[in-house]
Write a protein that binds this DNA or RNA. Sequence first.
DNA 1: CCCGTGCTTCGGCCGTCGCCGAAGTGCGCC
DNA 2: GGCGCACTTCGGCGACGGCCGAAGCACGGG
Lengths: 236, 236
Amino acid sequence: MTAKDARARALAALAGLLADETRAACLLALLDQRAWTAGELARHAGVAASTLSEHLDKLVAGGLLAEERQGRHRYVRLAGAEVAQLVEDLAARIAPEAVHRPRTLREAGAASAMARGRTCYDHLAGRLGIVVTDALAARGLLRQDTGFALTDAGLAWFDALGIGLDRRSRRPLARACLDWTERRPHLAGAAGAALCRHAFDAGWCVRIGSGRAVRVTAAGERALAELLGIEAAALR
Amino acid sequence: MTAKDARARALAALAGLLADETRAACLLALLDQRAWTAGELARHAGVAASTLSEHLDKLVAGGLLAEERQGRHRYVRLAGAEVAQLVEDLAARIAPEAVHRPRTLREAGAASAMARGRTCYDHLAGRLGIVVTDALAARGLLRQDTGFALTDAGLAWFDALGIGLDRRSRRPLARACLDWTERRPHLAGAAGAALCRHAFDAGWCVRIGSGRAVRVTAAGERALAELLGIEAAALR
DNA sequence: CCCGTGCTTCGGCCGTCGCCGAAGTGCGCC
DNA sequence: GGCGCACTTCGGCGACGGCCGAAGCACGGG
């Protein structure tokens, strides 16, 4: 009945949405920014379709997922960058010991590809994300020592590249996102998303398969070297 | 058995710690940065001492709380600023509709005092936090438009005030913390904590009662006006 | 037009978890 | 040294929630 109770109730309800292993697996899978069908998620999580249907109901009702019905398919994706950030933040906080050790060659290959470069919802992450972020900071385009913000030179750099940044949006331009594999922050926020989009549009990198892993192309290596002084060796 | 499963398990376990109303109420209460006894929390949450004892076991085991035994008392507090940030982040995300409407005069008074000024674990929040943050930004001491970072002038300002900032710590110097009541970011991180500590040490503000609410003193109004050009009217 | 497929609804099962009160432990105080 | 208080442990209860399979829709393709 007190103010605290209402807040506690709401907090517990929100956390409760994430507090189930199956739902957590769905949210983590959806971090790839794609829309999955209910069936795909059910197979991914290893539960019956009926079970997953109910989980999706809860996540949608809780505002974490957006859904789109197409024919007999139910497509579902994260409701937005804020939700992705929430999941990322929480996931980044789990103890490193809980991290999985690959057991097969195939797994090890996939894991190292993910560690080299991947997307983190809408921005670049993994080694690639860190290297780009550090290069931006080294060139005075990003202030990372006293917080996390683009400098005026940074704004000009984006402008010169023809990457438009919507500065009126409520979303912060630059935000630090803690990397799982590197345990260091990389560029997220509107600028991180715009840069990532540009990297794909300009052919700097391409997705490996259908997942979140990303590979830097030869053209990408040239562009990153020229624009940010990044050596190709740092990306491997 | 896959990597996703291990991550999902850990994520669900972490969220599960917050997914109970009683535990959530404890964590929210502990945001006042004080150490509470088990009995106080039990009374606060409205459950039996035995029930709360088990909740504390889980929160401590999960690393969210630190405990200290003194005689027959069990003092417990948040394990650190990161945990406070986690709880704050999650709490800030709950829909405004869930917020409580005060029903009595006493409640309304307490709520408005909290809205005017309070601490958010270790930094200033509420109207006070926003006004200070905006004033820092207006004077070019804090860059808020392209992210969230202190400027060189900002570093000099802290230095001139004799507020030491540990720049070697892993904790970010400046970080945005979203305010519940104002729905806008205010200064958190090492600089926010140092500024808050200084504000209390210098007598700029004092706690109202035993809670998180804070009142600006006459000396505080003078200091804020002189150092940051903040008008006293903005604080009311 | 009918069949197959993808999803949903329903009933029922089972495990987990929060809760309590009673009994037990340990500490401090008189 | 014994009483009282703060906390813990234990047993048991009840509720909730996740899970499944079966049956029921709804859409698209043949």
